[in-house]
Simulated scan of single mutants.
Amino acid sequence: MKVAALIPARFASSRYPGKPLVELRGAGGHGKPLIRRSFEAAQRVHGLDSIHVVTDDARIAEACAAFGAPVLMTSEDARNGTERCAEALDQLDGADVVVNIQGDALLTPAHFVEALVERMRGGKADVATPAMRMRSSEARMLQDEERAGRVGGTSVVTDSRGRALYFSKRLIPHLPKGSLDGDMSPVRLHIGVYAYTPSALAAYADTPPSELELLEGLEQLRFLTAGIAIDVVDVQPPAFALRELNNPEDVDPIEQALAEAGFE
């Protein structure tokens, strides 16, 4: 099975323009641009046959060339990372599985991606994505965020086969009194990494955005509204904090997480 990893990256982020080129210091205090750290995260994954950055911006392509990362250029039309991956399909050399490692998720553990690839092996799924069970204390923190009018993580609920029923930026399922009394909560936190078959990616690109996708701001909901099943793979959380670079104030905690993980 031939596995191609794609790292979608765009310069024109509404919340943090130019973030793929933001310098982030690692454990030794040495700064590297976000896109390089995301590429290095992909390099730590076993079983990938190729890794490419996918972008529409010459500045990102130039930065990638400086540290030797292959780049696939796409148009400016992609509305999200999945659409950008779909657009890059024609430039890949016969991949059986495409993995989307998001360009701002530089702390993605290798075992998350490896678990997805294993689920895809032998045609077991069309789309796969990881989730991890939240501690009750973490769920309470997200409840506090919701009460304050802030959106925290994305949660997911599944059927008995482990296929996604729904994703939401709200906490799901409903948590009645007593449901957070134990150490672990019923909430599963979705991690935004994806593995797709080329046919599922192509179908995604041919499907218009759904109302739910637009309301939630979650690209993966287009698969569900199109009738394409998403396998949710349970993974174990890493020893360090998982953080993404979405806003300038995320830089300090990400650099702390890089130091905790020992990434230079």
Rank of each mutant, 00 (worst) to 15 (best):
G182V: 02
R188M: 10
A261G: 05
P209H: 05
E213W: 02
P253G: 04
L214P: 05
D144C: 14
D252S: 09
I230V: 09
G153E: 09
M134H: 10
I254N: 06
V127N: 00
E244K: 12
R163Y: 14
S136M: 06
L189D: 06
Q236L: 13
F240N: 11
G217P: 02
S137L: 12
Y196D: 04
S168R: 04
S155L: 11
F263S: 12
N246S: 10
L214M: 13
S199G: 14
A257T: 06
P208I: 09
D250L: 04
I172W: 01
G217K: 00
A131H: 01
V127Q: 01
L221S: 01
S136L: 03
S210Y: 01
M132L: 15
R161A: 13
S155H: 10
E146K: 13
E219D: 12
Q143E: 10
T158D: 05
Q143I: 15
K169D: 08
M184T: 05
V233Q: 00
M184A: 04
L212D: 13
G153W: 06
R243L: 12
I228S: 02
P208V: 08
T207R: 03
P238H: 06
R161F: 13
D159L: 00
P176R: 12
D183V: 14
G153M: 09
G192L: 14
L212R: 15
V232G: 02
Q236E: 14
Y204D: 09
H190A: 07
R243C: 04
V151C: 11
A164Q: 03
M184L: 11
H190V: 02
L242S: 03
H190N: 04
A164N: 02
N246R: 15
I228P: 02
A257P: 00
Q220C: 11
L189G: 05
P248A: 06
E244G: 10
V232I: 13
D126N: 09
L171G: 12
Q220V: 15
R163C: 14
L224R: 00
A261H: 03
P248N: 02
P198A: 06
M141W: 12
V187T: 03
M134W: 15
I191H: 06
G217D: 03
K177H: 12
S136E: 03
Y166F: 15
T197G: 08
L171R: 11
R163W: 11
L180N: 02
R135Q: 09
Y166H: 15
S160P: 09
G217E: 01
E216Q: 10
Q256P: 03
E249I: 14
P238D: 07
Y196T: 10
G227N: 08
A195D: 01
E211Q: 14
R170P: 12
S155G: 09
P130H: 08
L214E: 08
R170Y: 12
D183T: 11
S160M: 13
E264Q: 09
A200P: 08
A164F: 01
E146Q: 14
V157F: 01
T225N: 11
M141L: 11
F167A: 04
I172T: 13
P208Q: 05
V156Y: 01
V127E: 00
Y166P: 07
L201M: 03
L258N: 07
A229G: 06
L221V: 07
D252M: 10
R163P: 06
L171N: 07
Y194N: 14
A239F: 03
V233R: 00
K177Y: 15
V151E: 08
A226Y: 02
Y204T: 13
G162C: 04
V233L: 02
L245T: 05
S137C: 07
